[in-house]
Simulated assay, not measured.
Amino acid sequence: MAKARVEDWIDQEDIEPKDLISADLLKVFANLAGFPSDGLGFEATKTALTSALEAFMWARLEQEALHPESAENKALDAAAQDASQLYDKLLLLQDYSGLEKRVEASIRSNPNLYEFDDGKTLRDLISTRRNIFRAYRELLVDLQVCLENTSNRQPKRHVIEDPDNGAVIELETDEEYAARMKTWRARSKERALPKDHALREFLRSLAPYWEANSPHPFTEGMYFKEANQTVSQLVDAVEIIMLVASPNTTRQQIVTAIRDVRSSLS
């Protein structure tokens, strides 16, 4: 079987997903899954397995790159602030006589503007002679609002201080505050990735090919006390791959991940 692992692949850019799959490993996997073990079907299985390992690798990278929510909020705030400042600076150009006209001429004569899929460029986002960046500025407002809405901070109580006696006045009920807290917690949980994120993405990628070509169900199977484990061809096949790709992955983790993925796909 192949000696390369996903961890090595992450560290070395020249390692390809297919390098993790030896001919022997692929044959064992195909036999466990009930896939063809020769000819074009064998190549199709290798392609599907390679794609699943790619999904595993990218999910592992995504998980390792996940920042704390506080850091994400800080980055979103900075981007929103920059969008707001660019809005103001573009608006300020109107205070300089003839300047927008010259900027417009520069844009219209630039042969190297970025093209969208429909062929449009910055030329299509500006108007003529004066207030040329009106539409562009409105896009910046939309961007700023969306960035701010993406930020997710723990809610604080809506209160004001009575100017006469300094007493704190509640501006919302306990139920309203609890509802905002519930929304914050749900959004915070949604952005987090489960510990088995990479394994789940491997399974999601593999599922369509497995269900279309394997005689065995895409399931974690049933637990048999005599064997002290679940009996499932899918678990067996994935376990063989994880021994190479991620040796620390346990059979129980595979069982749990299959159950969760199957539930999300149904």
Rank of each mutant, 00 (worst) to 15 (best):
D82Q: 03
L99I: 15
W58C: 06
Y96A: 14
A105N: 02
A23Y: 10
D77G: 04
S51I: 07
L99K: 08
K74H: 09
L49R: 01
G98N: 10
P36N: 13
R60W: 00
E104M: 11
K27N: 15
L26R: 04
A79H: 03
K74P: 00
S51G: 12
P68N: 06
D24S: 08
Q85Y: 03
A105R: 04
A52Q: 01
A83S: 05
A83W: 02
Q94H: 08
H67G: 02
K101L: 14
L90I: 03
G34Q: 11
W58T: 00
T50D: 01
V103N: 04
Q85N: 12
K46M: 01
L32H: 11
K74R: 12
E43T: 08
D77L: 04
E100Y: 05
V28I: 14
T47W: 03
G98S: 14
A30I: 11
K46Y: 03
A105D: 03
D24V: 06
E100Q: 01
E62N: 11
S37A: 15
Q85C: 07
E72A: 02
L99G: 10
L53Q: 04
S37D: 14
N73H: 09
M57G: 14
E72N: 04
L40A: 13
F35P: 00
R102C: 06
D95E: 15
Y96K: 14
S84Y: 14
G39R: 14
T50I: 06
E43I: 12
S37F: 06
K18S: 10
F29D: 05
N31T: 13
K27W: 05
A52M: 01
L93S: 10
L93F: 09
G39F: 05
L61P: 03
L25M: 13
D38N: 11
F35R: 01
A33I: 02
K89R: 15
E69T: 10
A83C: 02
R60Y: 00
K101H: 09
S22D: 02
R60C: 11
N73Y: 01
D38K: 13
